[in-house]
Design a protein around this nucleic acid. Structure first.
Lengths: 126, 126
DNA sequence: GATTCATATACCTGCACAGGAATATGAAAT
DNA sequence: ATTTCATATTCCTGTGCAGGTATATGAATC
């Protein structure tokens, strides 16, 4: 986390639906960009730019694995961030969009390995 | 509360420092615009416009009392709104700006009646 | 070394909003 | 009726995105 992290900056990150969906999905664990594309069903550039927005502001962290970029929630979030992410997860359980995303995430977990095998590589992004 | 209230709209209301300060102060009870001006030490137009922003989106409610407009948090907030306001109050306790506001609010409570008396009216806005 | 794959960035357009100055409203006091 | 007081609204300017298209990067594969 950045030290000068202000509460407003957290809320600025939270005031876009796509970013909310990203953070909600990340609550289940790290994920790569291609999976975000499938889960949110949004164009690559859109996902990528929102992830950059979140990264610059310290709401997500990245790690490269070959061609894939694995995004995850910060390992040591500030108290405010932790509180707000928890609040978001809680609120999200009541909203259809977020539930649909989580459903698609679960389906991905099942099919990810076979799909990777089919395209001739044993490597998985996440 | 509006029925179509979405989570993002709440966050949109929260992503401005002035509005955060307003909501934090309102956590202590209803307040009129003139007191917001004193507590936040911001120009009238700024306060007024942010209050309008919050009112339109259902984050605050208004009641006229003579010349004064008394603002307060919604009587029946949605679950998301309640959760996020609670989260805000919690996070605010660690930040200097918010504490200073609350300190000025407490000081106002002490001086409000005498001041009203001094200007020759027994009526108080709040 | 050329190509492919996964992702990022640059560039553009449009829109919503923040902040300030000036003015309008509307209730109360004179 | 006019003035005063508390607050709201209008008009203006600048800025920060959101979303899209096209292009760049950089690792892996052929």
């Amino acid at each position: 986390m950045k030290s000068g992290m202000e509460l407003v900056q957290i809320y600025e990150c939270l005031c876009d639906t796509t970013r909310l969906r990203i953070l909600n999905v990340l609550g289940q664990g790290p994920l790569c960009v291609c999976h975000f594309q499938e889960i949110l069903n949004e164009p690559q550039v859109k996902i990528s730019k929102h992830l950059a927005y979140l990264r610059v502001r310290g709401l997500v962290e990245v790690e490269r694995r070959g061609n894939w970029m694995i995004y995850e929630l910060p390992a040591n979030p500030s108290r405010e961030l932790a509180a707000n992410l928890a609040c978001l997860q809680d609120c999200a359980t009541e909203k259809a969009v977020f539930n649909r995303d989580l459903a698609r995430l679960r389906r991905l977990d099942l099919t990810c390995a076979p799909v990777a095998a089919k395209r001739g590589t044993t490597k998985r992004c996440c």
